[in-house]
Design a protein around this nucleic acid. Structure first.
Lengths: 141, 141
DNA sequence: GCCAATGGTTACTTTTGGTAACTCAAAGGT
DNA sequence: ACCTTTGAGTTACCAAAAGTAACCATTGGC
């Protein structure tokens, strides 16, 4: 029966979730998962990583063009944070006008896998979410 | 040679990333990935999902105790948003004092997989990130 | 001696997140 | 009769983060 299969999968996943939320604190402050969700759980970090991951390297303004809607300030802020965490490599060429290239480090590449799975989920389930939202909107009316 | 293996993996991943960032817009506004990253890219949504995913269901205050640091208001706000998106099921029992139970829907369960992979990455690479941050802090000093 | 191009920064506004106090409704004590 | 407790929230208020717009530095070409 279908329910049983789902239940078995759910049990495994439940155990994995439990394990993650109990990961103990490392060197810096909170438990790693908390800390890292805190850091990348913003509007632009994961998107930046996806875009950087889709090519070898990108210049500042090229990246800005591709990440639709991001402001110049937020792109610098986001990139600096990612650089500080060792996910992005920033290379400045001493030219005029300046040329700055951004690329994922190996650490950044390793995160890309998880981000992609998340992205795949998003595109697969967007219809279901849209439907849920519409149901909610109708119920409120 | 190791480099070749890494490069091949990188090429695959790059292609996947490219695919995701070009997913076209669906019913609501932006491209699904943008929209969904926007929605779950906040401080508490993914954490709430992880905690809900680690059990069958949780009452409001129990969940609040487990998600360390979340305020009452942010927990309600977060849960309402997740409910509106069809990820969380809210069940109110007509008792006094009230009892409200929260559980992941099947849609929520399906997201859990991606979140767990993200969490695993976080605990695996927390040391590397801590190191990068320290390097940055030292360089600034 | 002025403009354009690139990659920013600064000052200001708006939106979001966080805190603390309040509500509701019934049960239990005194 | 009245006060307190309990769970699950609101409401009003304040701080922090994100967004906007304008500005800056360099320098080769006109």
């Amino acid at each position: 029966m279908e329910v049983t299969v789902v239940d078995n999968q759910a049990a495994e996943v439940r155990a994995a979730a439990k394990k993650i939320i109990t990961v103990p604190a490392f060197g810096f402050g909170l438990c790693p998962v908390r800390d890292i969700l805190d850091r990348f759980g913003d509007k632009w970090s994961l998107l930046s990583i996806l875009h950087l991951g889709s090519t070898d390297s990108l210049r500042f303004n090229e990246l800005r063009k591709r990440i639709d809607g991001i402001s110049q300030r937020m792109l610098t802020v986001t990139l600096r944070a990612l650089e500080a965490d060792g996910l992005v490599q920033r290379t400045v060429y001493a030219e005029v006008p300046p040329r700055v290239e951004y690329a994922l480090t190996e650490l950044g590449q390793s995160l890309l896998g998880a981000v992609i799975e998340f992205g795949n989920w998003a595109s697969a389930h967007a219809p279901a979410i849209a439907e849920a939202r519409q149901r909610g909107a109708l119920a409120a009316a």
